[in-house]
Amino acid sequence: MVDQPAAEPRAGAGGQPYFRCSNMQSYYGESYIVQGVGFEIDKGEIVALLGRNGAGKSSTLRTIARAHAPHLEAGEIWLEDQPLHKMAAHQAAQQGIQLVPEDRRIIPGITVEENLILAQVAPPRGWDLERVYALFPRLGERRKQEAITLSGGEQQMLAIGRALARDIKLLLLDEPYEGLAPTIVAEIARTVEKVKAEGITTIIVEQNALAALRIADSAIILDMGEVVFRGRAQEVLDNEDLREQYLAV
């Protein structure tokens, strides 16, 4: 393991790390997917969670979001002083965790606006809808349109807008650039910067590792369900061997 401690202390109020997970072990049925993953994150940090296909990146995000699958068997997950490992998905979401899944999971059969309204049913509420539309004007123009008919880029905007409609503390972005045109990728990257400016901590999982590293403060590399690197994003960009070994880029 290439363990590089971050330069800054990862402490939130009261001396505890803002986000901390340790020894997370989760399973899809009998398959052991996340094998003792643990790391800490500062408040407001953007972390790129990287690794090859099958390294356990998306499963790690889903585990943190307390998804039904993969099922967390052992380990602890803390957001500030809240033990997420003891919560169901909806309870974790109410504590400020927001997963934007890999395939965006725009809910079919309802409109763009209804997708956003749905995000504000449970407390705590975040941005109001007009603010989301101001950030993504195209969503405002299509507010009455069935959400599933949006383009891929617009769906990604809706997925992020839906997250911002909640008062979130930790945003989990799973493959936000997947299948998107370069102009849309740039727009999503600018949005992530705006999210950071709001003080929201972000973990971004992305196959396009270089794109993720360019906006990230730090990076975690997973291999075979375990953390093999934790350090600054720039270190990964500068270390060709590391990228070659674990990211194949």
Partner: peptide, 24 residues
């Protein structure tokens, strides 16, 4: 109604509805 919206959404993707903090 809002209840109906949640149920219709839950019919299509109950996981995502839970990720939005709703006790489905």
């Amino acid at each position: 109604t809002r209840f109906g919206l949640i149920v219709r959404a839950g019919m299509r993707d109950s996981d995502m509805v839970q990720f939005l903090g709703i006790n489905i």
